[in-house]
Structures are given as C-alpha cells and as structure tokens.
Amino acid sequence: MEPAVTSAITLGEHTFDVLTAGPSGGVPVILLHGFPETAACWRPLLPRLAEYRVIAPTQRGYSPGARPVGVEHYTVDRLGSDVVALLDHFDLPSAHLVGHDWGAAVAWWTAANHADRVGSLTAVSVPHSSAFSWALREDADQQARSRYISIFRHGDSAERALLADDGERLRAIYGDVDPALVDEHMRVLTEPGALTAALSWYRAMGREFTDVPPVRVPTTFVWSTADDAIGRAAAEKCAEFVTGPYRFVELDGVSHWVPEEAPDALADEIVARVEGARV
C-alpha cells in the first residue's frame, strides 16, 4: 500500500488536514471521524483498504485551519457541505462514505441531501439522525445514555471539566483505545479553541440535525453491543429511514470505539458495502 500522507487542503475559507492513502486511481472512499477524535482513528483500517483511494479529513473545528469561532459555523449542513467541497477539490463525481460517531451523522446528512455524490454509505455507531432523535424522545434507555449531550451543550463548563488535571476526563472517554492514538487526538484537542470547536457540533444541533430525509443509497449500519452511547432501540429504528439496500451489522462485545477496537471487522463491512454497490 502507498504510504498515508497528511496534507493541508483549502476548501473555501478553511484549510483542512487531510489524510490520504492508496492508489490515486482507486475507488474513492471518504472516512469521517467522530468526537473526540481526528482522522488518525482510521489508521488501523488502512491496510485492509489498501486498494481504495482513501481520503480522511480531520474535520471542521479539529483542523487548526478550519476552526471558525461561533456555534453557527458547526451546523450539520455546514459539516456536510465540507464533504461536498472535498469531493469537488479532488474532482470526484461521487465517493463511498464511511462515518463513525459524529462523522456518521455528517455522512447520513450528506447521503440524504446529496445522493448523487454518494456511491454508498457505511455508518458506524450512530444511526440515522431521525432514528436517534426518536429514541431520545421515546426510549428511556437512550435518554439515560445521552445525558452527556446536555452537559456538552452547556456553556464552557464542559471544556473546563474535560481539560482539568491535564485532560484526565477527556482522556478517560477513549476507554481502551491505543494510547498512541489517544495521544494524537489529545494533541489536537488541547490546542487553543479546539475543544470548544469540537463541542460546538453538539451545541449547534437543531432542525438541520433532526430533519434529515431518508437515505436511498446502499447503506450498512454497524452497531456494537457494548456501545455506552447508543442503545439497541435507536440502532434497530435506523432501518425505517433507509429506502435503498440496507444491512444492519452487530459487533458483539465491542465498545463505541469500533474503528480502533474492531478495525478488521469494520474494514470487511466497508469493503462488502463498496463492492456490493459497484455491482
């Protein structure tokens, strides 16, 4: 496999750090990370995706050159528009999307609103936003799991708590993720303004997040049974918001950090979805 390279790529007013790997003529696959991570979370999957043209941006708020001040800059439609701008930058009519956590939410929005630019979708951990919103309203288990969201949305108190004691609470969020990857994420998120920008994704949650149309592109949703953040009700509801070919995959005993804990299993599902959509 050609070595992975991180380059600075300017999209409109902002400059993003973008990890690329694989042959330039390969089938393009865009990988979108979640909170509180960077594109480095995808490195464990790269050997299994060697035949593809992998493009993994460190997204808005995380890249130092794409860190505007103000919650209004972090609505999901703006985050999705960054994905479309990335496609345009690389002169790609379409690509296969993969997203984990918040990256999944962005991928769902992009697939729903720009289906002509998305060959397939593999969403990891976070289901379609309408399924998640339903569970927040109707499912007591999901309500309990999501209490942290109201904390993250509250002023700057979350930043102070997460960064106190040399970032002890922030570091604890990653659980058993490889400490080397955690260090890379922490290096970015402890930069001035970075954590506030990352939390702005939560603070900007509004109608653009909840009113996402159904997705018609070929889709796989990967959910893990030991995920502390997303419960079964939301995961199983997801199917109701996909009108195209759909596959629901459960990874038994894996935590929320699927790309890091189960990279081979996840890569297999990505390959199956990409190749299935190309038939």
Score class of each variant (00 low, 15 high):
Thr243His: 08
Glu260Gln: 15
Val83His: 04
Pro68Phe: 09
Asp82Tyr: 06
Tyr52Lys: 03
Pro263Glu: 11
Ala115Asn: 07
Asp178Phe: 09
Ala56Thr: 01
His100Pro: 07
Leu79Trp: 11
Val126Met: 12
Pro23Cys: 06
Val5Pro: 00
Glu208Val: 07
Leu266Glu: 06
Gly206Trp: 13
Val249Pro: 10
Glu240Ile: 04
Glu191Pro: 00
Val98Met: 03
Pro259Cys: 07
Pro245Arg: 15
Thr243Asp: 14
Ala95Asp: 06
Glu275Gly: 02
Arg153Phe: 10
Arg78Thr: 12
Thr38Phe: 08
Arg278Gln: 15
Ser157Trp: 12
Arg153Asp: 08
Ala85Pro: 03
Val177Ser: 04
Lys237Met: 15
Glu184Asn: 05
Glu138Lys: 06
Glu260Gly: 08
Ala66Leu: 11
Phe16Ser: 02
Val118Thr: 12
Leu49Gln: 03
Arg43Met: 10
Ala8Pro: 04
Glu208Tyr: 12
Ala135His: 04
Gly34Val: 09
Leu181Cys: 05
Phe90Trp: 15
Glu138Leu: 11
Val98Gly: 01
Gly61Ile: 08
Trp201Tyr: 14
Thr10Cys: 10
Pro127Lys: 09
Phe90Glu: 09
Ala229Asn: 11
Glu2Asn: 13
Ala112Gly: 08
Thr220Arg: 11
Glu260Tyr: 03
Ala111Trp: 10
Pro192Ile: 09
Ser224Lys: 05
Tyr148Cys: 08
Val271Gly: 03
Gly22His: 00
Ser255Phe: 12
Asp101His: 09
Asp139Lys: 04
Thr110Lys: 07
Val212Gly: 01
His256Gln: 14
Gly167Trp: 11
Arg171Ile: 06
Arg53Pro: 00
Gly26Arg: 01
Val126Gly: 03
Trp201Gly: 01
Val126Cys: 09
Asp141Gln: 13
Tyr52Leu: 03
Tyr174Gln: 07
Glu2Trp: 05
Asp166Thr: 05
Asp91Tyr: 07
Ser81His: 14
Gly193Cys: 08
Cys41Met: 15
Pro214Lys: 10
Thr196Pro: 08
Val98Pro: 00
Val279Pro: 06
Asp227Val: 04
Glu261Ser: 07
Met186Gln: 13
Pro23Gly: 02
Phe241Pro: 00
Gly119Gln: 07
Ile230Leu: 11
Gly99Pro: 02
Asp17Phe: 04
Arg171Cys: 08
Trp223Glu: 05
Val258Cys: 06
Phe16Trp: 09
Ser133Gly: 13
Ile30Gln: 00
Val106Tyr: 04
Met1Phe: 02
Ile55Phe: 01
Val5Tyr: 02
Val29Met: 08
Val271Cys: 12
Val84Lys: 02
